[in-house]
């Protein structure tokens, strides 16, 4: 009896760590587009970068419950770090990526202490404020950032000394996709770990989390720092693959867009950001072809509708669908848990 239960417990817990067939398919298809959709590599590159950015927001919003209206701060810092390094002659992409990650992580670590306390509104304002301050700095320090004209003269060297960036964006896409995939694996690992479980508990009920002995603040600082590094890397990828950085990377609409992307795809299951990025870009393509200037109107409308229709419910549905596909390999004799566990 009790060994039966033990087996069940282990199976249930460990299952979440296992990759489902849907997930494997997802990444296989992504890899296949490297060969089959060569004319789309520029836009695919953008999609992957936005997806990574949204994934990083998911880490703090979906897994730790921290609302942010200023996530672009880290994205922008990463972009500028990588861009400035490359302009000043350090052309190795991976070096730039590393530097961007570190810079963003540092900023994330320092500012994380500002979002530990206070209500959602305070958090929104503080994150927004941090992004605004950064935008203001980037604007004023034009000797460093090029100010409103943007950062020009970025020249990237080959990746690992082997792969030169090409004008079709194939190298760029392959590069971004690989980096994103590696970071995804890491994130996926983290969210099914005990650490990830403790994050979810904090999001659900911080009071109780403390009562279970979880050092809530330390955990939040850690995840905020990590998410900042992710966002920084996403920004760096954008700078390196487009070889241009403008103040736009720190703009409010960046923070708002990434929120929208994540909301479209669904919060709290890691794939939300990636799926949201695909939907977002495709929508943007379709709508822009139709009414290029007023694209923003339709974004707004989509947001309003999503919220009114019940964001949580929609997400739940996407997640269930996703589980249907992704969970197929998990041959479980037991009934699936009624909680569609937050992760895949």
């Amino acid at each position: 009896m009790s060994t039966n239960i033990a087996d069940h417990v282990r199976a249930t817990l460990v299952r979440r760590g296992r990759w489902g067939i849907g997930e494997i398919l997802f990444w296989l298809i992504a890899a296949a587009t490297l060969y089959f959709l060569p004319e789309r590599h520029l836009i695919l590159n953008e999609i992957v970068i936005i997806g990574l950015f949204a994934l990083s927001l998911d880490l703090i919003l979906g897994y730790a419950g921290i609302v942010s209206l200023g996530h672009a701060a880290f994205f922008g810092l990463g972009a500028y770090t990588a861009g400035i390094l490359a302009r000043d002659g350090i052309a190795d992409p991976l070096l730039g990526l590393g530097a961007a990650a570190i810079a963003a992580a540092l900023l994330g670590f320092v500012t994380s202490f500002l979002v530990l306390r206070g209500s959602d509104l305070t958090k929104l304002m503080v994150t927004l404020g941090v992004a605004l301050v950064l935008g203001e700095i980037a604007n004023q320090a034009s000797w460093l950032t090029g100010g409103a004209d943007g950062l020009q003269g970025i020249a990237m060297g080959p990746i690992l000394g082997l792969f030169e960036f090409d004008i079709f964006g194939t190298t760029a896409y392959g590069y971004s996709l690989t980096v994103t995939f590696l970071l995804f694996i890491l994130a996926r690992r983290i969210v099914v770990s005990p650490y990830g479980l403790s994050l979810r508990s904090i999001r659900d009920n911080p009071l109780k989390a403390r009562a279970v002995g979880i050092p809530v603040n330390r955990r939040l600082v850690a995840v905020y720092t990590l998410a900042a590094a992710y966002a920084g890397i996403a920004g760096a990828l954008l700078a390196q693959t487009t070889q241009f950085v403008s103040l736009d990377v720190l703009a409010f609409h960046r923070s708002a867009d990434v929120m929208l992307v994540l909301v479209i795809g669904g919060v709290g299951y890691l794939y939300g950001g990636l799926i949201g990025a695909i939907v977002f870009k495709v929508l943007q393509d379709v709508i822009s072809a139709w009414t290029p200037q007023y694209w923003q109107f339709w974004i707004g409308l989509i947001l309003v509708i999503i919220v009114l229709a019940g964001r949580e419910r929609l997400t739940e549905r996407v997640r269930v669908l996703w589980k249907g596909v992704a969970g197929r390999t998990a041959k479980s004799p037991e009934t699936l848990p009624k909680t569609s566990a937050r992760e895949v």
């Binding site: 249930t12 460990v14 690992r189 479980l197």
Partner: peptide, 26 residues
């Protein structure tokens, strides 16, 4: 969360596993 996850959380937290971000829970 499920009771399983909730109890698992408390146990692994107490045994010092809460910082562990690489091992799969369970």
């Amino acid at each position: 969360m499920t009771p399983l996850e909730t109890i698992g959380l408390a146990v692994s937290e107490r045994t010092g596993g809460g910082h562990d971000w690489w091992r799969v829970t369970g």
